[in-house]
Amino acid sequence: MKLTLTIWRQRNPGSRGKFVSYPMNDVNPEMSMLECLDVLNESLIERGEEPVAFEHDCREGICGSCGFMVSGIAHGPEPATTVCQLTMRHFKDGDELVLEPWRSRSFPFLKDLVVDRRSFDRIIQAGGYISVSTGSPQDGNDIPVGKEVADRAMDAAACIGCGACVAACPNGSAALFTGAKIAHLGILPQGKPEQDRRAVRMVAQMNTEGFGSCTNIGECTGVCPKEIPLEVIAKMNHDYLAGAWKERHKVVTAITPVTDWELAKK
């Protein structure tokens, strides 16, 4: 099949970017979006041009490395699919696909379709864990967890941190990501002891990163390759409001990131 890929090309954060159209004449419908870019890159390298930079790792939809906008929709038009799993048969012969990187102040641009998503790492560092003392492990059956509770936690834990929620949100909010990370631990008994501190610290980091606010419209859930429900945002708000009150005597700190390319800009 024939496709035209219109791709955002930008060498580095400092240079000016532009859209470049690449006509492709021999796209195999069984290829994934990323394989289609691989084929394009082969031809670009043969012609002596710079290949298109994009992130990828597992190519089976579970690592969260890949992701870009395909004609205005994060991860493309197929629901619950990452771009590495998005096969080209979903498009029509002759289609033009516009590929753009995630656009967010908190995801600084790096190159072509690659952005810096370490703001997500810092949100997890702020509290997305449980503290377990070393020593011999407790017997698993000592902590009863109901099936429904485990299912809810698993639904939230399915988040792969790809950033599509931020990219799709008209406000650039990271509420779905932060909510998923707060919820999947807070729902389980192992996560309960640190629930208040976790919510307060992760929300504080999220707000320090410069993400926008949630307006509860659900665009994030609509594009999420793991279909994380909006319920996790309510769980975040609930835990944050309760935690902010219970932990009001504590001084909460957050990390303000300063990266060297930001310094280079100044």
Binding site: V200, R201, T253, T256
Partner: peptide
């Protein structure tokens, strides 16, 4: 290069 803690 230089992350620094700030009041949340």
């Amino acid at each position: 290069a230089g992350p620094h803690a700030t009041r949340a």
